[in-house]
Write a protein that binds this DNA or RNA. Structure first.
Length: 483
RNA sequence: GCGCCCAUCGUCUAGCGGUCCAGGACGUCGCCCUUUCACGGCGAAAACACGGGUUCGAUUCCCGUUGGGCGCGCCA
């Protein structure tokens, strides 16, 4: 195989880019990049009723967000309808296709009776050898493939291996609709051929189509591309992915706070493996990817593992990138949290400083944003239930007693820590008895990043003001709302 | 109904006839670290769907059963 690899991702714009489509795109991309080949993008919009402009945008945006780039211009299938028609006509001329005058109602009845009698609901070939002169008036015909009825059709699949069908089990599919528009079957074959696609990598719901398409390639006298049908992704319950579980558009994963790199890593390991390796940089997955190691059974989508991976990639990401990413999410997350669509400079600066401690504890960007609440919370700080229970009378007394010491200490982690530890020793308290009320006063939560780092990020004035607010003393320095 | 595909811990998977009383990861549960929560470290429980073959020997090969999935449109 010394020819240059050309793959394609060919979604139909009838909805957003779902997770299965994203993985198909990823596999095509990896396979092309691996071999130094190209990946083309074709929008299969021949269904004029259901194809929409917003869906096209959503798919393109989704691919860009995921970091999957394609080569050349996007091909719109419907724009090639004339070429498809011409191809169908050529088959008519060569006798490999024929006109069928059966009406939709007629076909429906045909399928109904077949089902009722326990036969496969297929077209019975009633116009295959009938004289078109007998055509009923007023019926616009479709063009059907004159498929071979004897023998078998085999597909050598890169993932599934050799799969064969008896031709008698395949019927004469429609190539051109009565309105003159091509069907999916015709359009894919003609386009893949014209675009010189060498490898068709798609979901295994298309496996049977590969057989029918092979018949069409034969009719044209063209050689078929290599096929690779990858298993589908199922929901956590093993059933087909539906809106109920993971069948969210790729943008939903973005809004849930997942990183593109984490999603790529999660997706590539769903159905594919490389020994015991779990973490793959883009370079590593491109270098290691191969179709032969793709499994043949469907995989269930597992959010827990995605979260774990996301945590890994967040910890590895730079503080700047993380701040930028959560800011990018503000338009969707901000409003419900009393935040605008961008971070005020003060908040941004605090976030940057606090990020090392924050990112260690978050699984998603949403967690990250929420865990940073104390950085911009307006005073007086509201404590959540757990935090409030930490601040009892004894705690209040300790906070009040500790307060003057903090006022005097140099405002850097080690010095603050020494002061707090020294204070705990003196009053005979465990560090936790001082630290937890302190944490609650400063962050409003029972958990947070390292206490002394939090205090430094907040600054002396703000820290003392928050302590005073809980210790029951007059508020000396005003708590400054920053958002 | 017909055709095709699939079947290892709860989940993703390694395994391509003996190295497997089955390995890794996520999750779960302990312990350690520790001002909290995470992170990190250590450890534990947890699987070859079932039945027949083939073979000196099957998780690995074949057949069947069961279970699951996909397809059977003038949708893609």
């Amino acid at each position: 195989m010394s020819d240059r690899i050309v793959t394609r991702f060919a979604p139909s714009p009838t909805g957003f880019l779902h997770i299965g489509g994203a993985r198909t795109a990823l596999f095509n991309w990896l396979y092309a990049r691996r071999t130094g080949g190209t990946m083309l993008l074709r929008i299969e919009d021949t269904d004029r009723e259901r194809s929409t402009e917003p869906a096209i945008e959503a798919i393109l945006d989704g691919l860009r967000w995921l970091g999957l780039d394609w080569d050349g211009d996007v091909v719109f299938q419907y724009a090639r309808a004339a070429r498809h028609r011409e191809a169908a006509e050529s088959l008519l001329a060569s006798g490999r296709a024929y006109r069928c005058f059966a009406t939709p109602q007629e076909l429906e009845e045909m399928r109904d009776t077949a089902r009722r009698e326990g036969r496969a609901p297929r077209y019975d070939g009633r116009w295959r050898d009938r004289d078109p002169a007998e055509a009923p008036a007023g019926v616009k015909p479709v063009i059907r493939l004159r498929a071979r009825q004897e023998g078998e059709t085999a597909v050598e699949d890169g993932v599934q291996g050799r799969v064969t069908w008896q031709n008698k089990d395949l019927d004469d599919l429609v190539l051109l609709r009565s309105d003159g528009n091509p069907t999916y079957m015709l359009a894919v074959v003609v386009d893949d051929h014209d675009m010189a696609i060498t490898d068709v990598i798609r979901g295994d719901d298309h496996l049977t189509n590969a057989a029918r398409q092979t018949q069409i390639y034969d009719a044209f006298g063209w050689s078929a591309p290599r096929f690779a049908h990858i298993p589908l992704i199922h929901g956590p319950d093993g059933a087909k992915l539906s809106k109920r579980h993971g069948a969210l558009g790729i943008e939903a994963y973005r809004d849930l706070g997942y990183l593109p790199a984490a999603l790529r890593n999660y997706l590539v390991r769903l159905g594919w493996s490389h020994g015991d390796q779990e973490i793959f940089s883009d370079e590593e997955m491109v270098a290691a990817f191969d179709l032969g190691s793709v499994g043949r059974s469907a995989a269930r989508f597992d959010f827990a593992k995605l979260e774990n991976l996301n945590g890994h990639y967040m910890r590895a990401a730079s503080d700047e990138e993380l701040v930028d990413r959560i800011e990018g999410l503000l338009p969707v997350l901000g409003p419900s949290r009393g935040l605008g669509t961008t971070f005020p400079a003060v908040v941004r600066a605090r976030l940057l400083v606090a990020m090392p401690g924050l990112k260690e504890r978050a699984k998603t960007l949403v967690d990250l944003l929420d865990s940073a609440y104390y950085l911009w919370a307006p005073g007086p700080l509201a404590l959540d239930a757990k935090a409030a229970s930490l601040v009892d009378d004894a705690a209040r007394d300790r906070l009040a007693a500790l307060r003057p010491r903090l006022d005097a200490v140099a405002w850097e982690p080690a010095a603050i820590e020494a002061a707090v530890r020294g204070f705990a020793d003196e009053v005979g308290a465990k560090l936790g008895q001082v630290a937890q009320p302190l944490r609650a006063s400063l962050t409003g939560r029972a958990t947070s990043p390292g206490l002394f780092d939090v205090m430094v990020v907040l600054g002396r004035d703000e820290s003392l003001a928050r302590i005073d607010a809980q210790a029951g003393r007059p508020v000396i320095a005003a708590s400054q709302p920053v958002a």
